[in-house]
Computed example of a mutant assay.
Amino acid sequence: MLQIDNLHAEVDGKAILKGLSLSLNAGEIHAIMGPNGAGKSTLGYVLSGRPGYEVTEGSVTFEGADLLALAPYERAAAGLFLGFQYPVEIPGVSNLQFLREALNAQRRARGEEPLSGGDFIKRARAQADALGLDPEMLKRPVNVGFSGGEKKRAEMVQMGIIDPKLAILDETDSGLDIDALRSVGAGINTIMRKPDRAVLLITHYQRLLDYVKPDFVHVLAGGRIVRSGGPELAHQLEAEGYADIAA
């Protein structure tokens, strides 16, 4: 599904990614771990097309297409979803309004009919119920006044409504208590653990992986993948840290 070959990227002239290669197949969940400053968030931003992140070498293909040649909105329409470490607030725009516009923009880009208001409300309420978010919160401005856990639950609802092919989740466990962590893990499993879906899960800690069992764990250090393994690698990192592996 996703093939990254020798990816180099820089921000403000500073090299961050330095030859990163990774292959992600449909039906797989891959966890990316690593020390601060290793390039984990940069990888997510480069894949999603965030301005200011310049690719200087290498290639990325998504379902056989050149991902780097697509604008950010085209990547979203192709099936990419980026979850943020710190979801932004959008005062004056309700979750329902935001999500309906986002979903129907993607449907139009794919040549599909937009959902009617009634059909969208049913879809949004079903996702909110499944992920433990009070449906009334969907009427509130995007993330305004939400706790950290509520923001992350709302983001899982967004992901469920959009129903992407590939979810790139950047430290989605940041700041979560145990209940919220369990809810987010359940959301990832419910929405994305499917034969035609895939997840790139960026995290510092092993704790989320207790709920989302990854197929592979990769250590990103110095701008490249330096080690890969199964879930047991995350437990090793939790116990021993990154010093020896990332050296």
Rank of each mutant, 00 (worst) to 15 (best):
P195W: 13
I191L: 13
N189E: 14
L103N: 04
D66T: 10
T61G: 00
N36G: 02
Y86W: 11
D179A: 12
S228M: 12
D119Y: 03
E28Y: 05
E10Y: 02
G83M: 06
K213E: 13
I121L: 15
L96T: 14
A154H: 14
D173V: 04
M1L: 15
A38P: 01
R110D: 09
Q97M: 07
Y211S: 02
K165M: 07
T56C: 09
E101I: 02
E101D: 15
L68D: 06
T56I: 05
G175Y: 04
P35S: 12
H218E: 06
L209F: 04
I178Y: 02
S48N: 15
E150M: 11
L166N: 08
E136L: 12
G145H: 05
R108Q: 12
G160P: 11
G27D: 08
A198K: 02
P141Q: 08
E113C: 05
K18I: 04
D12T: 10
Q236S: 13
A243T: 13
E112S: 09
V46P: 05
E171K: 04
D177H: 01
R153C: 04
P35D: 11
V93P: 05
D129E: 15
D170W: 13
A167R: 04
R140F: 07
L169H: 13
L99A: 08
A128H: 09
K139T: 09
G39Q: 06
E10P: 03
E150W: 09
E113S: 15
K40V: 09
D129Y: 01
E238K: 14
G223W: 08
M33D: 03
K14S: 11
S228Y: 04
V93Q: 14
D244A: 14
M1V: 08
S23K: 13
D163I: 00
P72V: 08
G132F: 02
R50T: 12
G241C: 00
G34L: 11
G187Q: 05
I162G: 11
T61L: 06
S23D: 12
D163M: 01
G175H: 04
A15H: 05
F62A: 06
S41M: 04
R100Y: 05
I162Y: 06
Y205T: 07
N143Q: 11
K165E: 03
L176V: 02
D177T: 01
E113Y: 03
N95D: 10
A38L: 02
V55C: 04
E238V: 00
G117Q: 13
D119H: 08
E136C: 00
I225N: 15
E240I: 00
L237S: 12
F146K: 00
G222R: 14
I16P: 02
L82T: 00
Q85M: 10
G145F: 11
G52Y: 08
A247T: 11
I32W: 07
L237E: 10
D129R: 02
L166Q: 14
M33F: 09
G241H: 08
P164T: 04
Y86M: 00
A105D: 07
A102T: 14
F62N: 02
S59M: 07
I161Q: 05
E113T: 15
A71C: 01
G175I: 01
T61E: 13
L237R: 12
A167Y: 06
M137D: 13
R108K: 14
A167M: 05
R182D: 10
G222W: 12
